[in-house]
Simulated assay, not measured.
Amino acid sequence: MSRHHSEGDGRRTYLHLEQDALESLGTASPVAVPRRVLFVCTGNTARSHLAAALWRQVSPIPAASAGTHPADQINPGTIDVATRRELELPIVEPRRVEDVLDPDDLVVTVCDRAHETPKVPGELHWSIPDPVDKGPEAFDTAYAELERRIKALAARFHPDEPPPTRKE
C-alpha cells in the first residue's frame, strides 16, 4: 500500500492498494457491465484521453473522456507518449463533463482535482499524478499506471456478456 496527499486541495490523503493485495482479498470478481466508461480529469488534455484510448484497446465497452475545466487542446506530451507507444489517440478538442456525461456512465476520475469537484459523480477514483509540464518520463509513468489499472478493471467485467446497447 502507498499513500500520498492530493494534488488538488492537498488536505486529502489517497491510499493505493497494490493489485496483488486486492486479488488476495478476493476482489477480482466480475461486476455489472456499464454502457460506457467516462474518464475525467481536470483539463481533459492528458490522463483522461490516454485512459479512454487505452480502454478502447482492451474492451468493447465504449469510452469517452472529459474535463472539469477543459483546456483548448490536448497536451503535446500526450500525443508524444501515444505516438511512442503506438496508441491510437483521436485528436479532438477537450470537452466539459457536463457536455459528455450520461447517467448510465461508469465515471472514473483520473486526477485528484476532478475527484474533489462536487459536480463529478465519480464512482471510481484513480489518483494518477499530473504529467503536464514534467517531461516525457512523467507521461510514460502516467501511461504505464493507466494501462495497468485499465487492464485490471476491464478484466472485472463478464467477458461473455456483450456491453449494453447505448441509447443516443
Score class of each variant (00 low, 15 high):
I79Y: 01
D80I: 06
D80C: 09
D80F: 10
V81D: 03
V81S: 01
A82E: 06
A82S: 06
T83R: 15
T83Y: 12
T83P: 07
T83I: 12
T83A: 15
R84N: 15
R85C: 08
R85S: 13
L87S: 08
L87R: 07
L87P: 07
L87H: 04
E88T: 14
E88C: 11
E88F: 14
E88R: 15
L89W: 06
L89H: 05
L89Y: 04
P90M: 04
I91S: 02
I91T: 09
I91A: 01
I91R: 07
V92I: 12
V92D: 11
V92Q: 13
V92W: 01
V92A: 13
E93Q: 11
E93R: 12
P94M: 05
P94I: 09
P94W: 10
R95K: 15
R95V: 08
R95M: 08
R96P: 09
R96Q: 14
V97E: 05
V97F: 15
V97Q: 05
V97K: 08
V97P: 06
E98D: 15
E98V: 15
E98G: 14
D99M: 10
D99P: 06
V100F: 04
L101P: 04
L101F: 09
L101C: 04
L101Y: 09
L101R: 10
L101G: 03
D102N: 11
D102G: 07
D102E: 13
D102M: 11
P103K: 03
P103N: 03
P103W: 02
P103M: 04
D104L: 11
D104V: 07
D104E: 09
D105E: 03
D105C: 00
D105H: 00
L106R: 00
L106P: 00
V107P: 01
V107M: 00
V108H: 00
V108Y: 00
V108F: 00
V110I: 10
C111E: 10
R113T: 13
A114W: 01
A114C: 02
A114I: 07
A114T: 04
A114K: 05
A114G: 07
A114P: 05
H115R: 12
H115D: 11
H115G: 04
H115F: 13
E116G: 09
E116F: 06
T117L: 07
T117M: 10
T117W: 07
P118V: 14
P118D: 14
K119I: 10
K119T: 12
V120A: 07
P121L: 03
P121H: 01
P121C: 05
P121T: 01
P121S: 03
P121Y: 00
G122M: 06
E123Q: 15
L124Y: 05
L124C: 00
L124H: 06
L124A: 00
L124M: 11
L124K: 02
H125F: 04
H125S: 00
H125C: 02
